[in-house]
Each structure stands twice: as structure tokens, then as C-alpha cells.
Computed example of a mutant assay.
Amino acid sequence: MNEARVRTTVDDGVAEVRLTRPDRRNALDVAMFSAIVHAAHALRDRADVRAVVLSGEGPDFCAGLDRDMFRAMRSGERLSATADLPPLPDGSPARATGQRAVYGWVELPVPVIAAVQGHALGGGLQIALGADLRIVAPDATLSVLEVHWGLVPDMCGTVLLPELVGRDVAKDLTFTGRRVSGTEAVALGLATRVDDDPRAAALATAREIAGLSPHAVRAATRLLGTTRPPAEQLAAEQAEIGALVGSPNQREAVTARLEGRPPVFAAGEPHS
């Protein structure tokens, strides 16, 4: 079931996760929700993965919920609750199926880049919000569309959206459900940058990241992935830098740069 909805490939440290339901604009049905959660879960403990690209096959990233899901809601049924999911990670705040389809990407220990073309609407946009970076086509269409279906964002959108665009813009987008282009999304802070070929740009960025020290990148992911009080954040900075300075990969980064050659990094813990 999962293979019919999502395909994951790993090449030289870069995992590409592709939504594979282009005939339905990669819309979210029960099988798609299950496949997305399983795909993120499967990457959690893979030491060979250094960056992830999340993309959709066909002209769209993800057009949101499948209409059959909305039809079921008319009788009060939430089909997403029936999805077959892996065990809940320890300490994860995301409990509902849709939340896990988004927060699973937030919880990965490596950078996740969403490549957005065509439509990213409603739940599809919220999945993109779970990525660390969003590279979008200039003419992409993004919308917090839930209000048009009589709903509110319930896939981590009320947490992630205000962090990116500020509370007032988040309210504007949520209250109105208005559609914005990729170009406007970047101006609002909803997306990172535009590119005519978002997938190619995302893969190039992921390969660049994969060529850097994996321990430094993972440390940066941990530091920039949460909001802490200043004292806790500054203490976390010192803990991370303390583990990195003098570690094998940090020594290799310095040596390779001074010698003008590509670095060769090792996996494992920083001091192993």
C-alpha cells in the first residue's frame, strides 16, 4: 500500500521521498497518509542519510485532502484516523495522523527540503511546512485552504505557520484561505526561495549539504529545529560546539579546507 503512494530512494547520502499519486494531484487519502508517516519513520535512524528531498510526481506537490475524505466528514467520520501507522516515537507531540504526516519531517535529525511545484493546498501545504526549507516554483499555488471546507489547519499548521510568517500573516492566510504564488510565498516567508525547477534545485542543495560534515549538520538541525528560552538555547549551543571541536569530522573539515581538497567524512558519533 505504501509503495503505491510514496517512493523513497537514497543516493549518496540524499534521500528523495516522492508522493506518487499524480493522477489525483497527490491528494491525501488514507493510504497516502499512512505512506507518508511510514516514509518519515523509516528515515529516522538511517545514518547513511544526510539530507532529504520531499517532492511530488506530476504537475503538483500535493493538492490537499482527497475529496472522499471530505465526503466522509459530512457524517462526522474522520477517515485519517483509520490509517495504519508505525509506533509513535517517544516524546513526539504529534498524535493525530495528519500531524504525524507533517511532524515526522520536523523530527528527522537531518535537513528536509520540500520541492513545491503546482499546487500545495491545505494539508499539502502543511506537509511542506514540516520541511526545513521550501523551494518553490514562481508560479506555484499555495493556500491555507481549510476555511473553504469549514475547517481549520489541524496538521501542525497552527504551530509551524506563525513561526514562518508571523502571527498576523498566518491569520490573514488562515482566515481568508487566499492563494499565493510561489513568488509571494517567498516574500511572506512562507517559502525559502523560488526556482524554475524546484526539484532539481532541492536535490542540488541536498547534495551540497550531504557533502558537509554530517555531525555539524545534525547539530545545526537540532539547534535550529526548536524554540527554547535564550538561556537554554545558548547552553545548547555550547554543548553542541563542545562535542564538535576536535572531533574526527571537525578535524577532517579543517584539514581538507586547508589542503584544498574535498573532505572525507565518517558516520557514527562525533567522538567515535
Rank of each mutant, 00 (worst) to 15 (best):
D11P: 04
R46E: 09
G182F: 01
L142C: 02
A128E: 00
R7Y: 10
R24W: 11
A94R: 02
L79G: 05
A137R: 01
G122W: 01
V180Q: 01
P87M: 12
A131Y: 00
E240Y: 04
L234V: 13
A170P: 00
V194T: 11
P270R: 06
A4C: 10
R193E: 11
V217Y: 12
A39V: 06
E237D: 13
P86K: 07
A4S: 15
E107F: 05
A202C: 11
I36M: 09
E237C: 12
F33L: 10
T97W: 00
A35M: 06
V14H: 02
L125F: 03
R74Q: 15
V169D: 05
Q238G: 13
R21C: 09
A236W: 05
V37H: 02
I113L: 03
V52A: 05
N26R: 07
C62G: 03
S181W: 00
R21A: 08
V264P: 08
A200F: 08
V194A: 07
P229N: 15
L121R: 04
G260V: 09
L258P: 05
L65N: 09
G150I: 06
G91Q: 15
A131V: 03
G76D: 11
R21H: 13
P59F: 07
A201C: 09
G76R: 10
E240V: 08
G130N: 02
L88K: 14
Q99M: 08
D168K: 12
R44A: 13
D11F: 10
I241Y: 08
R257I: 05
V17W: 01
M69K: 02
A40P: 02
N249G: 01
V245F: 08
A256F: 03
A31D: 11
M69W: 03
C62E: 02
D48Y: 15
L203D: 09
V264W: 13
G157S: 02
